[in-house]
């Protein structure tokens, strides 16, 4: 850590919260919190755990204070940190909780979509994360491979397996759109 970096972080740490810091936090939350909460929620299948993981992610953003090239770099960093935090939480808590109807409702999922949402959250985490990043966030397999640290072929395979598994589950449920 060179002298300039230390002084920069030191200034931030000892200053009281001003408008700039407050605005930075508010903007970061506005830009990224919905996406990150959705990822954490679907990986962890638990409302409280998802909120904890989300808070840990943002605390790391504030305390590590990395230098980002641009907004996309910041977003990719946050996704990587959030998924790693969720993986660690899953490692220590292997049992899968079932989501209650209340929890599902609180995140805006309608009752009629409960079945498909349950089927999505029942997928293995490695499929859920690539499906979210590709179909919801619009990342290519190559971009996803950079974010989560697996090669692009593995990403494509996980997308295919995720689709197949979800389709099989919905067909078992006789799901009608």
């Amino acid at each position: 850590m060179d002298g300039f970096e230390v002084i920069t972080i030191e200034k931030r740490k000892t200053q009281s919260i001003g408008d700039t810091e407050q605005r930075y936090v508010e903007l970061a939350v506005e830009r990224h919190s919905k996406m990150l909460f959705r990822i954490c929620f679907s990986l962890l299948n638990n409302y409280d755990d998802a909120e904890d993981a989300l808070q840990d992610t943002f605390i790391r953003l504030m305390t590590k204070a990395p230098q980002f090239r641009d907004d996309e770099h910041e977003k990719a960093w946050l996704i990587r940190v959030a998924t790693n935090i969720c993986k660690n939480m899953l490692r220590f808590n292997r049992r899968r909780s079932s989501l209650s109807l209340d929890e599902i409702r609180e995140v805006g999922i309608s009752e009629s979509d409960t079945e498909i949402f349950d089927a999505i959250t029942a997928l293995p985490p490695k499929y859920k994360i690539v499906m979210d990043l590709h179909y919801i966030e619009g990342y290519t397999a190559s971009e996803i491979s950079q974010i989560i640290g697996v090669n692009a072929d593995a990403v494509r395979k996980r997308l295919q397996n995720g689709r197949n598994k979800l389709k099989a589950e919905l067909e078992n449920l006789n799901y009608d759109e």
């Binding site: 959705r38 929620f41 309608s110 498909i116 949402f117 179909y135 919801i136 689709r163 979800l166």
Partner: peptide, 16 residues
């Protein structure tokens, strides 16, 4: 159809 349904449901996700 599967991907369309997946997107529809996941895009309705909100953060309280």
């Amino acid at each position: 159809e599967l991907v369309s349904e997946y997107k529809r449901v996941m895009n309705s996700f909100e953060i309280p």
